[in-house]
Amino acid sequence: MDNQDVLFRSFTLGDMTLRNRIIMAPLTRSRAAQTGDIPTDINAEYYRQRAGAGLIIAEATQVSPQGKGYAFTPGIHSENQVAGWHKVTTAVHKAGGRIHLQLWHVGRISHPELQPNGETPVAPSAIKPQGAQTFISADSGMVDVPEPRALATDEIPSIIDQFRQGAENAKRAGFDGVEIHAANGYLLDQFLRSESNQRTDAYGGSLESRLRLPLEVVNAVVDVWGTERTGIRVSPTGSFNDMRDTDPVETYGTFAKHLNEIGIAYIEVVEDSFQGNLEKGRPQAVIDAIRSNFKRAYIGNGHYTDSEARQRVEEGLCDLASFGRPFIANPDLPARFRHNAPLNEWDSSTFYGGDERGYTDYPALNAEQ
């Protein structure tokens, strides 16, 4: 493709100019150090290889020990974790890339063996997600998550503080901005959706009450980063981790309106998930509700090919497109899109955990040539 290719037109995201509209989606890979959940040199190399993206959104990263839901996922709550992430951001910046960190609290998708002092995972309501699983060690395999306990109202400020501290630590680690994880059945998503939030206090019941915690978290993160370097991810019709909402058009259209009033830089929308979706194909009514209420950048995500991404950007259905699994197998994905080169196939058996195999050893186009 030539330089007029819409995916290679620059884009102003917040106050950053991106060199292309190809975004690397946040991808859990479970390759942090087994002790301390610390990013290491292999993580720095992995992200450096993918610095050709217009923006890398780094993998979901727990903002506190309570926020952890899977073995070997990185954190951003200790000094060693900050130092480990600094290796990553330095490597990406030296390669000419931009990188945001995704701030994460899993809520009920955890297990006592992953929680401080073996505590029960927390959630808006004490509702066990049917079929939801996690893994707690290299040898455990997938295990069911237990019934969580409902957060007390007076515990909510501590959740907000965890996100605020995570945002501050991400800044010290050298990131260019942050994305708040409010998707895929994790804590903020659990508060957003009607089926997982059965509270009767100020944080549940009505739609405005369900939106309260996610919006308070957004405001806390904006206090640290400003609106221009803050984004959010949502999955309005994703069913992963036993999630559903009685009226996603109203829920996410209203949420988008509030986010627009705050003025954050972007919203990344998981339109169609390989992990499960309640609607077949793209939920256009929900997408339209978000687009009509949120006037800043819209990042579309979910099973995009490069040709579909071009078409949707040209038609104004999204401003940028994020790619997940294609970036796993193709560290130079933008170059392959530009030259219409064949893509490496991913090996799903190496997605989570392990070493460099299926992580940093996928060949780049130059090496293949």
Rank of each mutant, 00 (worst) to 15 (best):
D176G: 03
A53N: 08
G69R: 02
V145L: 02
V143T: 13
F163S: 13
K280L: 11
F274M: 10
E308M: 09
T35M: 04
L18I: 05
E368H: 03
L333G: 07
G185R: 02
A289R: 07
D361E: 07
Q4E: 14
A60Q: 12
A167G: 14
I22Y: 10
E250L: 14
Y70N: 04
S349A: 14
P363R: 11
P248H: 02
H181L: 05
D242E: 05
A297D: 06
R212L: 14
T230Q: 09
Y298G: 00
A321W: 01
A285I: 01
G52N: 14
Y203W: 08
A95R: 06
I127V: 15
G166W: 02
G107K: 12
M16G: 06
F274E: 14
H86D: 14
L55V: 02
D361L: 03
A32E: 00
A335Y: 14
I180A: 07
Y359P: 08
T73P: 06
L320H: 06
V286E: 03
A91I: 04
D347R: 15
R48I: 04
G14R: 12
S349L: 09
H181C: 00
S196Q: 10
G205L: 08
P121D: 07
L7K: 03
I56P: 04
A289I: 08
I264P: 09
R164I: 10
Y266E: 02
Y352V: 03
I76Y: 06
V270M: 15
I160Q: 11
A289G: 10
E147W: 00
D306A: 15
E356Y: 10
G69C: 05
I22T: 13
T305K: 13
P65W: 03
Q102E: 15
G358S: 01
I159D: 01
A297S: 15
T237W: 13
I290K: 07
T251P: 02
I127M: 03
A367H: 11
Q165R: 15
R29E: 02
A58W: 00
L13Q: 12
N20C: 09
F8M: 10
D161A: 15
I42G: 00
V63C: 02
I264Q: 03
S110E: 05
D189S: 10
T227D: 07
E268P: 01
T251K: 04
L343P: 01
N197F: 04
I56T: 07
G204R: 11
I38L: 02
Q49T: 09
P342Q: 08
D306M: 06
V92W: 00
P74C: 12
H303A: 14
S206E: 09
L259D: 13
V6G: 05
E113G: 00
I160L: 13
Y298S: 00
G300P: 07
Q369V: 12
D272E: 12
C318S: 09
H93K: 15
P129A: 10
S206G: 02
G226D: 07
G324Y: 00
I76R: 08
